[in-house]
Design a protein around this nucleic acid. Structure first.
Length: 475
RNA sequence: GGUCCCAUCGUCUAGCGGUUAGGACACCGGGUUUUCAUCCCGGCAACAGGGGUUCGAUUCCCCUUGGGAUCACCA
């Protein structure tokens, strides 16, 4: 059995969203689990739609997600080059083979004439097939007009690794364009040639191509190519579930998620589980587990809706599951600016306290700012608190003074703080909901924070007492 | 409209003839000495409809309905 080779073949027309990444991920998984190769090929034959920098952006995205490829435009291999615009000679060669065998001919009509045929067919409520207008004696092809495939219409049945057995009638086959009048091949022609030349064994692609497969099957035969394993991915739908996820529709660039502090592990895990599962109740999969367990046969046939809430949850789960040191290493650039003057040891302490409640790294500032700077006094936190608003300010002031007196004697170790806090509950006769809320708000001025003893410990004695004092003054 | 594909809780899904139809997200309760979160416990919630086949259909077949893809000198 020959080595498995899969490819990801985007056109450089923009960034990559989760839909595109999923196709790449699945192709990557198939290659990696078999010890095969994963190839990146840039399909840049449509010069009009090409977006400057898109190729670099695609490469950056794949890199960022750890979807390493064995051959690509920036990683030459024996089947290169890997940009279609650099492979024009190859297409020319195969186009000539088709011309010589009578399976390709010059399109003698103008675009307007073809359009007229199309409209006529529509008017008659008939499907438009160019081959119904196939010229009897086409002129020799001089490269300035489209070159069309002379199809051999017939019905097909073929296996799809995801969809199962598919079939289509002869009406799905037409004389499509192989080479455009600008000299560039169409996707329909170029990808067939490239997959063959690059020894691709598994063509894994989105559902939008399924209707064209009969044409491809017909072309494989005309060219004498062996047909690769075909695998069609259902689309990922937008959150409304009414159309395929698209850039136009506001689908986010995967790099945006990464920038917001979504972990690579979570992105990979989430994207893989959109339309795939291993048949058990496992939800969290590492990259290695995915490589081991993934199979095209278990990919869902129906489209899956993109549910950002699930991604949110999964990212939180991943953040919690990793070492604090690991998360710290990835947290550079996310800390509030006030944290700049603090050392790593302090930030690690802070991170350990917020790690379990963080959903993505960009939340770091709102979760931790009070550890690094004094927040402005906000009496609304007290006056609006459902436990505290029942008390007069004078009562609260008295409670805080008692707390302050005790804390002044503390060494601020967690043990001592815990003991003193418990003692204060006894001496003041207050419930934790009242006393602890009060001290917590006074020492942080934040709407929420980690547990009290932990927070005070990390904040340190001087800062804690200064803040408590400031609140006493304000009451 | 033609062609093709699909169809289990709101969402992602398990199920491959006999199950109290399971899990996860979200949501709603309760608990863990305060808050937010975590964690634990509990709750809500689904086989689109109709015909077959069968002793028995979520599961197999057909129809209907619904959804999606595609009908370019885009990929």
């Amino acid at each position: 059995m020959s080595v498995i080779r899969t490819r990801f073949a985007p056109s450089p027309t923009g960034y990559l969203h989760v839909g595109g990444i999923r196709t790449a991920l699945f192709a990557w998984l198939v290659a990696r689990q078999s010890g095969g190769q994963f190839i990146l090929r840039i399909e840049d034959t449509d010069r009009a739609r090409e977006v400057q920098g898109a190729e670099a952006h695609i490469i950056e995205s794949l890199r960022a997600l750890g979807l390493d490829y064995d051959e690509g435009p920036d990683l030459p291999g024996e089947y290169g080059p890997y940009r279609q615009t650099e492979r024009l000679d190859t297409y020319k060669t195969w186009a000539q083979v088709l011309i010589d065998s009578g399976r390709a001919y010059a399109d003698p009509y103008s675009a307007e004439e073809v359009q007229a045929f199309r409209e006529q067919a529509q008017k008659n409520k008939k499907p438009f097939l160019y081959r119904n207008h196939r010229p009897e004696n086409p002129p020799a092809w001089d490269g300035t007009t489209p070159l069309r495939f002379k199809s051999d219409p017939k019905s097909y049945e073929w296996p799809d690794a995801v969809m199962g057995d598919l079939h289509a009638g002869a009406e799905a086959i037409d004389d499509f364009i192989l080479v455009k009048s600008d000299g560039f091949p169409t996707y329909n022609f170029a990808h067939i040639v490239d997959d063959h030349e690059m020894a691709i064994t598994h063509v894994i692609r989105g559902q939008e191509f399924i209707a064209s497969v009969p044409n491809y099957l017909n072309l494989y035969e005309a060219l004498g190519f062996e047909r690769p394993v075909l695998a069609t991915m259902p689309h990922i739908l937008n959150e409304q579930g009414n159309k395929k996820l698209s850039k136009r529709d506001g689908a986010k660039d995967v790099l945006d998620y990464l920038r917001d502090g979504y972990l690579v592990e979570a992105m990979i895990n989430f994207i893989a589980s959109l339309g795939w599962n291993d048949g058990t109740t496992q939800e969290i999969f590492s990259r290695e587990e995915l490589i081991q367990k993934f199979s095209l046969e278990r990919v869902q046939k129906a489209g899956a809706r993109f549910d950002e809430q699930r991604l949110h949850w999964m990212n939180g789960a991943w953040i919690r599951s990793l070492d604090t040191g690991d998360i710290y290493a990835r947290s550079q650039g996310y800390w509030p600016s006030a944290a700049d003057s603090y050392d790593e040891a302090y930030k690690l302490q802070v991170l350990a306290l917020v790690q379990e409640r963080m959903k993505y790294l960009a939340e770091l500032p709102e979760l931790t700012s009070f550890f690094f700077e004094d927040l402005p006094l906000n009496m609304e936190l007290i006056d609006g608190n459902k436990q505290l608003k029942k008390f007069e300010h004078s009562e609260l002031r008295s409670l805080l003074e008692q707390a302050k007196a005790s804390l002044e004697e503390s060494d601020f170790s967690i043990e001592d703080l815990t003991t003193r806090l418990n003692q204060l509950l006894d001496t003041t006769g207050q419930k934790p909901g009242v006393l602890f809320s009060l001290i917590r708000i006074a020492s942080t001025q934040a709407p929420f924070s980690p547990s009290l003893a932990d927070t005070l410990h990390v904040l340190g004695k001087e800062r804690s007492l200064t803040r408590v004092h400031a609140t006493i003054e304000a009451l």
